[in-house]
C-alpha cells in the first residue's frame, strides 16, 4: 500500500466507517474475534487482508478460524464454511463466548447509548406494538455478555446515538438488575468485558475509565467535533478528541475492488 491520502469526496461515510474499523482491528491481530452480521463482516474481511492477517475469526453459526475467500452476505453463508478449521452448528459457534475464549466481539446495531448499551430489537412505541421492529438479539446479547471487549459499528445519527436505548439488547457498562430493572455497573452482576470502542460514520468513541460514559476520541477528516455533538442525542464530551489520520487511496481501492466489487453492501 502507498501512503497517498484519499480526498473526502472520494469515499462515502459508510466506507470511512468500515476503513477506520478495519484499522482498529489491527489491535486484534493474533486474537480471537466473534463477528456479527452486516458491516462488521465487511470490516473484518478488509482487516484480515491488510491490517490483521492473523486475526482468528469465529462465527455464531459454528465456524472456528473462518477464512472466507470472498465476502459473506449471510451469517451462515457457505463462504464462511469453506476453508474454516471446524464447522459445527450455532451452539458450538457460541460456546467459545461462554467459555471466555473470545477476545473481542464485533457487532452492528440500531441504537447505542452513552453507556455503550446497544439495541437491535425495537425502536419507538411499545414492545408489543413497536414503531419499528428490528432483528432481535442474534449473537449480539451473547457477545455483549461474554466477549472480553466489544467493538460496535453504526451510522452516527442523533436518534441512534442516544441517552438510553429503547430496548437493552447488548449490555454495555450500565445494565439492568432484575427484577426491578435498577441501573447498575455490569461488574456488580459478575459480568466481565464491556464495550471498548464505538466506530461511527463520523468518528471513534471510547468510554471513560472512571464513569464509563462515552466520549469522542477521534473525528474523521471533514467532520468537526461540533458536527458530532449536533448528531449525538446526549451531551457528548469532545474535549479529548483529535482528528483521525486520513484514509488512504489504497484502502478505498481494496475495499471497492477486492472486498465488495459488486457493491453488495451498498456502501457506495
Amino acid at each position: 500500500m502507498t501512503q497517498q491520502y484519499a480526498k473526502i469526496s472520494e469515499y462515502t461515510p459508510a466506507e470511512a466507517m468500515v476503513v477506520y474499523a478495519a484499522r482498529f482491528l489491527a489491535n486484534f491481530d493474533g486474537k480471537k474475534g466473534l463477528i456479527g452480521t452486516g458491516l462488521p463482516l465487511v470490516a473484518t474481511q478488509l482487516a484480515k487482508m491488510i491490517y490483521s492477517p492473523n486475526m482468528v475469526i469465529f462465527v455464531e453459526t459454528g465456524q472456528a478460524d473462518a477464512n472466507p475467500k470472498e465476502l459473506a452476505i449471510s451469517i451462515m453463508d457457505s463462504r464462511l464454511t469453506y476453508g474454516s478449521s471446524w464447522q459445527m452448528g450455532d451452539p458450538e459457534g457460541l460456546y467459545p463466548l461462554s467459555r471466555n475464549e473470545i477476545d473481542f466481539g464485533f457487532i452492528g446495531g440500531a441504537q447505542i447509548d452513552k453507556y455503550g448499551n446497544v439495541n437491535s430489537t425495537f425502536i419507538g412505541g411499545d414492545y408489543n406494538k413497536p414503531l419499528k421492529r428490528l432483528a432481535g438479539t442474534a449473537g449480539a446479547v451473547d457477545i455483549g455478555v461474554f466477549a472480553k471487549t466489544t467493538v460496535i459499528l453504526m451510522a452516527h445519527q442523533k436518534r441512534r446515538v442516544c441517552e438510553f436505548v429503547d430496548y437493552l439488547t447488548t449490555p454495555g457498562w450500565m445494565v439492568k438488575k432484575w427484577p426491578e430493572g435498577t441501573l447498575v455497573r455490569r461488574e456488580e452482576l459478575g459480568m466481565r468485558g464491556g464495550p471498548g470502542c464505538f466506530i461511527s460514520s463520523m468518528g471513534i468513541c471510547k468510554f471513560d475509565e472512571g464513569d464509563k460514559i462515552m466520549y469522542l476520541d477521534r473525528y474523521f477528516p471533514g467532520i468537526t467535533p461540533e458536527d458530532i455533538k449536533a448528531n449525538t442525542g446526549f451531551d457528548i464530551d469532545v474535549s479529548r478528541a483529535t482528528e483521525a489520520d486520513p484514509i488512504l487511496v489504497d484502502e478505498i481501492r481494496i475495499l471497492r475492488e477486492e472486498i465488495d466489487p459488486l457493491n453488495i453492501y451498498k456502501m457506495r
Binding site: 457460541l94 461462554s98 439492568k176
Partner: peptide, 30 residues
C-alpha cells in the same frame, strides 16, 4: 437470546429441565 436457544435445545437434547448460564444478565430479555 441466541445462546438461550442453543442452551434451551441442549437441555431438550440432554433430557434435562434447565441449564444455568449468564446469557442475558443485565438486558431487557429478562
Amino acid at each position: 437470546g441466541h445462546l438461550d436457544v442453543s442452551i434451551g435445545l441442549l437441555a431438550l437434547q440432554a433430557g434435562v429441565p434447565f441449564i444455568a448460564s449468564k446469557t442475558c444478565i443485565g438486558t431487557d430479555i429478562l
